Computed example of a mutant assay.
Amino acid sequence: MAKSSIFILLALAVCFFSFFVSTHGNDLKNRFVVHGTVYCDTCNVQFVTKISEPMAGAKVRLQCVDFANDKNITLSKEATTDEKGSYSIEVDGDHAEEDCQVTLISSSRDDCTKLDSDKHLNQAAKVSITNDNGLIHSPDRLANALGFMKDQPLAECAEVLKDLSLNPDGTEIEDNS
């Protein structure tokens, strides 16, 4: 009798699990998390260096717009970075037919607020929020790091950039040998 009761309970558990997956499977399949970081660009070169500083408390926005009508915003979510300069934004639904990107909203530091509009008209990190893109089916989406710049680069930037074979303006040092 005890064996048949256990068998019935196991059969009910399997049925319930199968029902749950069949009714909620697409919801779970189309749930994503966009991860990224924000930093203070201490050398004003628009990429992370060894002296870049993670920015806690910065605000970012994930926004998706319809490919067919770029004025039709289909998703807009904001996040604030943690003490390591990292953020995570949960997204429900597949956004295969949309252009999605993370942009900087506001800096948390008075000494690091500048955006380089000359080099990049739009400080943004594009992300693909779909499972129909040929990538591994993972819910995690990684956005490129985004940075605010200091008003004046730090003094040690010249040495850091020299180690990277770059001039202080970020251009490559010419090899005259």
Rank of each mutant, 00 (worst) to 15 (best):
A143Y: 00
H35G: 01
H95W: 02
D111H: 07
K84Q: 13
I8C: 08
H24K: 14
S22I: 13
E159T: 13
S4C: 06
D140M: 04
K29S: 10
C157S: 05
V127A: 06
N69R: 09
A155Q: 12
S52W: 06
L10Q: 07
S4Q: 13
S76P: 02
E172T: 12
N122L: 15
S88F: 06
I8S: 05
I89V: 08
L12S: 10
F17H: 12
C157D: 06
I89Q: 01
S18Q: 13
Y87L: 01
P54K: 04
Q152Y: 15
K150Q: 15
T42S: 06
K114S: 08
R109L: 10
G147D: 05
N72Y: 08
N69L: 07
L62A: 00
S4M: 10
L121Q: 15
A11R: 06
A125D: 04
H35I: 03
I8E: 09
Q46F: 04
L9E: 07
S5Q: 12
S86D: 09
L161Q: 09
D70Y: 12
N72K: 15
F32D: 02
N144I: 05
D82T: 09
H137Y: 02
E78G: 00
M1R: 12
S117I: 08
A68D: 11
L166R: 09
H137E: 10
I136C: 05
L154W: 09
R109G: 03
T49Q: 05
F47E: 12
I51H: 09
L142D: 14
T130M: 11
L166W: 02
K29F: 12
T130Y: 10
N131G: 13
D118T: 14
D27C: 08
S138N: 04
P139N: 07
N72P: 05
T103P: 00
R31Q: 12
I8N: 06
R141L: 01
S108G: 04
Q123S: 15
T49W: 08
Q101W: 04
V33P: 01
D27I: 11
H35T: 03
D27Q: 14
V21S: 07
G57N: 14
L75T: 03
L146A: 07
L115N: 02
A155P: 07
C157P: 05
A145Y: 07
L62Q: 01
Q46D: 13
S76Q: 07
K119F: 08
L62M: 03
K162Y: 10
F148T: 06
T74V: 14
V160M: 07
V60D: 01
H35V: 03
V38N: 01
A96L: 11
M55A: 08
N122R: 14
L164P: 02
L12R: 03
Y87Q: 02
A2R: 13
A56W: 03
D151I: 10
T171G: 09
Q101Y: 04
